[in-house]
Design a protein around this nucleic acid. Structure first.
Lengths: 113, 113
DNA sequence: CAGCATCCGGCCGGATACTG
DNA sequence: CAGTATCCGGCCGGATGCTG
């Protein structure tokens, strides 16, 4: 039996692809709180990252259709990012990740002793 | 304010790290069905991948504590992989991913037209 | 303020070959 | 059957500098 590329077919393979970026989950988490501007977003990221990197990640997520980018025609420029419709639905994944992530952290702590 | 590495603190950052591997989600999905042997696992993976690659991914997941590796002392060798306790709890994430992944796939289909 | 162009280095996954 | 050793190429993220 021929093996196939299941991207766009299997939900797990597809999700994996979307979540590959080093920051995608955290960006989605921040956007889930509401629309946010570029610089504010960068400030809230957990680790230092250049705007180049953040910009690239956002562009990828936008191309994947997870987020919306709204540009206001003004000086200085203002751009707001927000979750798209399908991005909003991603919140159930975020919820699950939050629960599991906390359990995992606890689990690791108790093993280190 | 100093930015910090929130691995082991923030559930999202921690989860992201764990899910970076190109195959991690699908492996977890297959293991969630029950214990499975190495070769059988490889056969069920969606795309062709060498055993070297699979072996490395499994080792990583094992080091992270998500899966158990049980080696049976026999010839020919037999090794079974299964979810650890914290790995079992990961199922809620898998469920969320399955739901969202399918919605995402549908969403993309309708946009391509 | 937001973004792009470009360069660079490291890491990760794939391929091949060998071991018990 | 399962795994390791080694090499290699590509991709992705980080750094820097320029644009409107």
């Amino acid at each position: 039996m021929e093996k196939k590329n299941l991207f766009g077919v299997c939900p797990y393979v597809t999700s994996q692809k979307v979540l590959t970026g080093k920051w995608s989950i955290y960006i989605m988490y921040l956007l889930a709180k509401g629309p946010i501007r570029f610089n504010e977003l960068q400030r809230q990221m957990p680790e230092e990252m250049t705007h180049t990197t953040l910009s690239r990640q956002l562009k990828t997520l936008e191309e994947e259709g997870l987020i919306n980018r709204i540009e206001y025609a003004q000086i200085p420029p203002k751009v707001e990012y927000s979750l798209s419709e399908i991005g909003e639905k991603f919140k159930i994944v975020l919820d699950a990740l939050e629960i599991w992530g906390n359990e995992y952290i606890e689990c690791m702590k108790s093993k280190k002793k």
